[in-house]
Design a protein around this nucleic acid. Structure first.
Lengths: 221, 221
DNA sequence: TCGCCCCTCCGTATTTCTACGTGTGCGAAC
DNA sequence: GTTCGCACACGTAGAAATACGGAGGGGCGA
């Protein structure tokens, strides 16, 4: 896609101005990388990619409007050849698996430096994968534990309004009875919602629900 | 502490190089602020403050070795006059309350800009408080809900080894019986640990335990 | 040595959660 | 316009968690 003497054209997507500025500073005196645009959410990233057709997009996972995972899926679905390297604050199993399954070819912690950014860009631009050290360790463990399998079922798990209400109340340590009173329904009904939540989130018990809620923004930590 | 024509002397503490670089860039062409040092964790921040005696320290909450909350407490306890403005990715009740109770006088989201940084520095340097908009909204609600009271009891809630084991297993959706089998103890014993965990974490039920575990690093999301 | 805390276990009672069955109403699809 | 799926609602019954009380052994610092 790029001959060797041409710079790799990249874009950066992150909702934090300061981070973007710091990232740009990292690119100074790196003739091998050329920043051709920046975005502060997933939606504007898609538009940016369409107009600039960069080789690589460095994409923050957590962004407003459209997060990195969603954006990554859309990029992949659209057939655009731009490759995604995920940026994340966290080295968490869940996020790594999600973004890689969404189509990212690299994963860097935000606690990175210019050398790693360059190395990742080069590797991914050549069609390889690139993960920072701690992430590749995690990945090895996940694969060993058989927890990373790109072909998982992924049912539709859109939560209904009532289910969402029950989930958030439940995260605030309300019992079924208390939730029932607040919603003016029988506490048996609340139990029904709880059950369907267990199914939809593929959880064994309420603990799984809480973890799901936190992961998916239904409850803040 | 500073006469009006002298710059406010500040330091920045954050474990992310990119963020620090971006933050420094923000200070360009701002003669009212002078950066006199930077640190990448709480421990080195304390040393830095001791040698440079800055007016203000911008401190990330989440840092390795010693986090911002701990560092803030130590600064306050030592009698140093340096004032702390917290930096955080998150606008979460828990973090806001924690860092303010630790002695921070300001709270900025990392999604900030040069104007806000300057405004915060000026305000705090004059002895005022400064919170970004969304945070002050949160604070108002917390105070209204009577959830922000600086004189909370804060029992010793150091968890024992067994309690920690039970807590982490429980976060992995294991039942008491399953935990008992893995630990080779009676499931009644597991119940005992669970009860003491509920007490120590001031939780109403297992959901509170999970939230506590996630907040305090016993379980990753 | 004494007190304190941790680890371990148990009995009993109550509350809460989980599993499964049943039914209604509404909108989409055929 | 009937069928189908789904959100919504409630019930019974059994499993699990929570509450409260008691008890013995061991480690460790005052």
């Amino acid at each position: 896609m790029n001959s060797n003497h041409l710079p790799i054209r990249i874009v950066i997507a992150d909702d934090h101005l300061i981070f973007r500025e710091g990232f740009k500073l990292l690119l100074n005196n790196q003739p091998e990388l050329e920043l051709v645009g920046e975005a502060d959410n997933g939606r504007s990233l898609l538009a940016l990619i369409e107009t600039t057709s960069p080789d690589i997009a460095f994409v923050d996972i957590k962004m407003p409007e459209m997060d990195g995972i969603e954006a990554c899926k859309k990029i992949k679905a659209s057939g655009i050849t731009t490759k995604v390297i995920a940026l994340s604050m966290f080295n968490d199993d869940y996020l790594i698996v999600e973004i890689l399954e969404a189509g990212a070819l690299g994963y860097l912690l935000k606690n990175t430096d210019k050398h790693e950014v360059l190395a990742a860009a080069k590797a991914v631009n050549m069609g390889d994968n690139y993960y920072c050290d701690s992430t590749s360790n995690k990945l090895a463990k996940l694969i060993a534990a058989n927890r990373y399998q790109p072909d998982k079922p992924t049912k539709q798990l859109k939560l209904s309004i009532r289910e969402t209400e029950v989930l958030t109340m439940l995260c605030n340590q309300l019992t079924n009875k208390e939730i029932a009173e607040k919603l003016n329904i029988s506490f048996r009904t609340v139990e029904t919602y709880r059950l369907s939540l267990l199914e939809k989130t593929n959880s064994k018990n309420v603990i799984g629900l809480v973890v799901y809620a936190i992961r998916n923004g239904y409850h803040s930590i």
